[in-house]
Simulated scan of single mutants.
Amino acid sequence: MTLTWSTKPFAALTLTELYDLLQLRSEVFVVEQTCAFQDIDGMDQQAYHLLGYTPAGELAAYARLFEAGRSYEQVSIGRVVVSPKYRRYGLGRNLMGQAIAQCEALFGPQPIKIGAQYYLRAFYRSFGFEQLDDIYLEDGIEHIHMLRP
């Protein structure tokens, strides 16, 4: 499946794009993963937003990108999500490839840090991320910090 990708700072998002990304994050992180947490965390305004739309105009994949010093000391990628409707098309791999490429384009080549769900560690390792520390719980889900040197 081919997506149309765009990367925008918060102020450049359209109302429709903002609605789409908040709806997708809520669908997956709050409803599907049954986590009652504050998704709207005051960090969206500091992030670049990577949006992958289908030819039909549906948001299928999304991630937040941060320059160093915003979320972590390093450049970081967060809120990585693929719509349940569009899973099994390899969009997760496509999304992470796009996210890494956009981080390099925006911030230059430098280490990238993520807070990854533990069960996805092999997926992130395939992109060169290495586990930094022990498992920690975030909103009841096992996570690890990982770094791509």
Rank of each mutant, 00 (worst) to 15 (best):
F107K: 01
H143N: 11
R125A: 15
R25H: 06
A116L: 10
K113M: 14
T34R: 15
D133I: 05
Q38A: 05
Q98N: 11
M1I: 08
L22Q: 11
E104N: 14
L137F: 06
Y62L: 02
R79Q: 11
D41Q: 06
R125P: 00
Q38T: 08
P109A: 15
Q110T: 11
G128W: 09
W5K: 04
R148N: 13
M146P: 05
A60T: 02
M1T: 12
G97N: 13
F29I: 03
Y48F: 15
V80W: 11
G78W: 04
G108Y: 07
Y53W: 06
I135Q: 13
H145E: 15
L50W: 03
V80G: 12
H49E: 06
Q74P: 01
T34W: 10
Y48P: 09
E130G: 09
P55Q: 13
D133K: 12
E73H: 13
E104P: 01
F29H: 00
G97S: 14
Q33M: 14
L59E: 01
Y136I: 13
Y72L: 05
D39M: 02
L106V: 11
I112Q: 04
L51V: 08
E58L: 01
F29T: 05
Y86W: 07
A122T: 14
H145W: 00
F127V: 14
Y118A: 13
H143M: 10
H143A: 07
Y53N: 09
C103H: 05
T14L: 12
L137K: 11
E142W: 10
D44Y: 03
Q131E: 14
I112C: 02
L106P: 10
R88Y: 00
A99W: 00
R64F: 00
L51W: 03
Q102C: 08
P109L: 15
M146H: 09
A105W: 00
R25W: 05
E73W: 04
G78R: 08
G140Q: 09
D139S: 12
S6T: 15
T4C: 09
F129Y: 13
S83L: 03
L65K: 01
G97W: 03
V81W: 01
Q23F: 01
V81F: 08
T34S: 14
P55A: 14
V80C: 05
A105Q: 15
T54C: 04
P149Q: 14
G52C: 05
A116D: 03
I144V: 15
Q23I: 02
R70D: 02
R87P: 00
L51H: 05
E27N: 02
Q45K: 14
Y86D: 10
L106C: 05
G108M: 08
I114R: 08
E32R: 12
A61H: 03
P111H: 11
M43V: 02
I141V: 15
F10K: 07
A122R: 11
S83K: 09
D133R: 08
Y53R: 06
R125Y: 06
H49P: 09
A101S: 14
E73Q: 14
F129A: 08
E32N: 13
K85W: 05
F107H: 11
L22V: 09
E104F: 13
I40F: 07
L24Y: 06
M43N: 08
R25D: 08
E32T: 14
G52R: 00
R148W: 04
Y86T: 01
Q38C: 06
E138K: 13
A61T: 06
I100T: 07
Q23E: 13
P84Q: 07
D41Y: 10
T7F: 01
Y136F: 15
L51D: 03
D39I: 08
D44H: 02
A47K: 00
Y124E: 07
L51Q: 03
